[in-house]
């Protein structure tokens, strides 16, 4: 059994549009950052300071993905940049979900299970492991 043509087209389209969406969000976010001179209330001069990784005010640990809708509603730079970065992180999840549907549809039990394991690993990396890292 070979990979179905439909899956190939769907995966290719997901990858193509996800990258366009992601880069568009990042470009909008960085443009807003420079135009407004800040992001999420943090001055750009401090955002551009990457010398101290121990300072949590200016990196991802201080901006949970749940804050993205709020950031977008306020037309905030970090909201757009974070959305762009999370679109990138979620692209493989979407690809895997499409593969899972295809394998289930074609009744390919082995690859349904394997895809499910990979999805579980990604779920663990996105939800379970960070809980232990942050606590």
């Amino acid at each position: 059994m070979e990979t179905s043509d439909k899956l190939t087209s769907v995966v290719s389209a997901i990858l193509k549009y996800a990258i366009i969406l992601s880069i568009a969000c990042i470009v909008i976010g960085t443009s807003l950052m420079f135009i407004n001179g800040n992001a999420n209330g943090i001055p750009i001069s401090q955002l551009a300071n990457y010398e101290n990784p121990k300072n949590p005010s200016y990196n991802s640990s201080s901006f949970s993905p749940v804050l993205i809708p709020q950031g977008l509603a306020h037309f905030d730079a970090l909201g757009f940049i974070s959305l762009g970065l999370w679109v990138l992180i979620f692209t493989p999840v979407t690809v895997l979900l499409s593969s899972l549907v295809d394998y289930m549809y074609t009744r390919n039990k082995l690859y349904t299970i394997l895809t499910f394991i990979v999805l579980f690993n990604l779920f663990a990396a996105i939800v379970i492991v960070p809980y232990f890292v942050t606590n």
Binding site: L47, N59, S60, S61, T134
Partner: peptide, 15 residues
């Protein structure tokens, strides 16, 4: 992507 999400919560993604 698997590694990135862990990096995100650990604070290693500098916007």
């Amino acid at each position: 992507a698997t590694g990135s999400s862990i990096y995100w919560y650990a604070g290693y993604i500098q916007f």
